[in-house]
């Protein structure tokens, strides 16, 4: 399976809507739509920059729900929305906790239900802090996707595996989002072999704790080759964020042809 992350409102609202339509048309399995935050602690420079620019242009949660509704309307009008649970029909919001807390969970849930958003993924809400929120989302048929790390202890992995829905988001390495190149000014000892060994160990453990639950791998997957390498591990889903943002921001064509080609290039590998 293939998941693509986009920052809502970047480079602007219209481009976000076009990009979302492409993700849907190209049968991306799941869409993570990023709610920009002023202090994105888990993100590297590319997603940080996209968040700051989107915020400067005035994006907010209400406008993000409008983006989702408009995208679906336009897809419906051209007859390609369908009812299959994929693309924008399988969309979750990637958001830091403060915008959720501030907006109010009840109001957010209502908006999610009205626009068909499936759930939330909150990178700064570890499993210990998430229980109340998760229970409330579940009550309304919405999911909370939890992140597991290669530093997570067995106890924590087990709890994450049990509670995360509809898949487990495994962070591929010790670090923040972005390709190695983006964050190498932060990385002192990038022992890739050691991290890969840890990653394999954690995947095996998660599979053992929750045999039927999909594992998505994200952070640093920035090329078709990396996607291929991802599926050589025992995971079910590749999650691409930073690279998608890079391609999108560099694509000056009216119809986002390069962005579409990039998504297409990932497709055959990930099926």
């Amino acid at each position: 399976m293939l998941t693509i992350f986009l920052t809502a409102g970047y480079p602007n609202t219209e481009r976000t809507i076009k990009a979302l339509k492409i993700l849907h048309e190209e049968n991306v399995d799941l869409v993570e739509l990023g709610v920009p935050f002023s202090d994105p602690l888990a993100d590297g420079p590319v997603i940080q920059n996209s968040s700051f620019k989107a915020l400067e242009s005035g994006i907010n949660i209400d406008k993000i729900f409008e983006i989702i509704s408009r995208t679906k309307e336009e897809l419906n009008t051209n007859g390609s929305l369908g009812s299959e649970v994929k693309g924008v029909n399988n969309l979750i919001l990637f958001t830091y906790y403060n915008p959720v807390y501030n907006y109010g969970l009840d109001k957010l849930i209502e908006k999610c239900l009205n626009t068909g958003v499936k759930g939330l993924l909150i990178p700064d809400l570890p499993v210990d802090e998430a229980e109340e929120l998760r229970a409330k989302l579940n009550e309304h048929g919405l999911t909370l996707t939890l992140l597991a790390a290669i530093t997570s202890t067995d106890e924590r992995l087990q709890k994450i595996a049990e509670l995360s829905e509809p898949f487990i988001y495994l962070v591929s390495r010790i670090g923040i989002t972005g390709s190695n190149k983006d964050i190498n000014n932060l990385q002192e000892n990038n022992d890739e072999a050691k991290q890969l060994a840890l990653l394999k160990e954690k995947i095996a453990k998660l599979k053992n704790y929750a045999p039927d639950k999909a594992i998505g791998l994200g952070f640093g997957i920035d090329s078709p080759e990396k996607v291929k390498a991802t599926f050589e591990l025992d995971v079910d889903m590749a999650i691409i964020g930073t690279k998608a943002i890079r391609v999108l921001e560099a694509d000056s064509s009216e119809n986002l042809n390069e962005f579409r080609d990039f998504i297409k290039s990932l497709r055959p590998i990930s099926v």
């Binding site: 602690l41 700064d124 570890p126 210990d128 992140l147 530093t151 106890e155 962070v171």
Partner: peptide
């Protein structure tokens, strides 16, 4: 899960809102 041994909150304030990697 291991319980924190120092109080994690001051009333409703405090807590551990960080990426899992740091936990």
């Amino acid at each position: 899960m291991e319980k924190t041994k120092l109080p994690k909150y001051f009333g409703k304030f405090g807590g551990q809102y960080v990426p899992e990697t740091l936990m």
